[in-house]
Design a protein around this nucleic acid. Structure first.
Length: 211
DNA sequence: AGTTGGATGGTCT
DNA sequence: GACCATCCAACTG
C-alpha cells in the first residue's frame, strides 16, 4: 500500500512521490492490471486558475477538498474520464492528475478494455497499438484500467480497494525526471499556463502526446 | 512529422 | 450557452 503521509504535504512534493509509484486495478477473477506512473501534473487550490478548484467547492470537485489519498475522477470533453490523487491536508484543495502509466501487468486486460471503450464510442479499434502506448494519456489510462466516475471519492491508499496505489519497487525509480508546463490549460493565463508543474520520466516510452 | 477539426455532454456562468 | 486537465483520423508537406 502507498503511504498516505507521502501525499499530505505540498502538491509538488506529492507529485514527486507519485512518479514511479504503481497503480493497481483488481477485479475478481481477473489478472490484476498494474502500471508504473510515468507522467503526472500538480493542481492547486482556488488560487490556481488552471485547477478545477478555481470555482471553489462544487458537487463535481468535492473530493479535491477531502483528505489525501482519495481519488477524484472527472469527465472531460463529454467522453473521457481522468484520474487524480487528492493531496494536501483535509479541507485544502489540491490534486495530482495521473497522465500516463507504463503497463507492467494485466496487459491483455488493458488491451481488451481499450477495445471495449472504443467500441462503445462507435470508433474502430486501432489496428496496431504497442503495449507501451496502452495507457499513454489521462483518458487512455482510464480506459485501459477501467476507471470511471464510480471510482471518484474512493481511498487509493486502501490495500483492499479495486483501484489503489502501491509503492514504487526498486526498479521503478524514475531515471530521468523532468518538470515541464502543464498540458491543455492555456486558457488559465499567466503565470499558471507556464508553471512547470508537469513531472515526467523522460526515459519512458509511455508518455502522452505532450512534450 | 506536424497540424487541424470533429465527436460529445457535464458543469458552471 | 460557452467552455473544456482529450483522442484520433484525416489532412498537408
Amino acid at each position: 500500500v502507498f503511504r498516505r503521509a507521502d501525499l499530505e504535504g505540498p502538491v509538488l512534493a506529492a507529485a514527486e512521490a507519485l512518479l514511479g509509484a504503481r497503480l493497481v486495478r483488481e477485479e475478481p477473477g481477473e489478472e490484476p492490471r498494474v502500471g508504473r506512473i510515468v507522467e503526472v501534473e500538480a493542481y492547486g487550490g482556488p488560487e490556481d486558475r488552471a485547477s478545477h478548484a478555481r470555482a471553489g467547492r462544487t458537487a463535481r470537485t468535492g473530493p479535491m477538498f477531502g483528505p489525501p489519498g482519495l481519488a477524484y475522477v472527472y469527465r472531460v470533453y463529454g467522453m473521457y474520464d481522468c484520474l487524480n490523487v487528492v493531496t494536501g491536508p483535509d479541507g485544502a484543495a489540491a490534486a495530482v492528475l495521473i497522465r500516463a502509466v507504463e503497463p507492467l501487468g494485466g496487459i491483455p486486460g488493458m488491451r481488451a478494455a481499450r477495445q471495449r471503450a472504443a467500441l462503445e464510442r462507435g470508433r474502430p479499434s486501432p489496428r496496431s497499438l504497442p503495449d507501451a502506448r496502452l495507457a499513454a494519456g489521462p483518458g487512455r489510462l482510464c480506459d485501459a484500467l477501467g476507471v470511471g466516475r464510480w471510482a471518484s471519492d474512493i481511498d487509493l491508499c486502501d490495500g483492499g480497494a479495486p483501484l489503489r496505489l502501491g509503492p514504487a519497487h526498486a526498479e521503478d525509480r524514475p531515471t530521468q525526471p523532468a518538470w515541464t508546463p502543464r498540458i491543455g490549460i492555456a486558457h488559465a493565463g499567466e503565470p499558471w499556463a507556464s508553471l512547470p508543474w508537469r513531472l515526467v520520466d523522460r526515459g519512458s516510452a509511455s508518455l502522452s502526446g505532450g512534450r
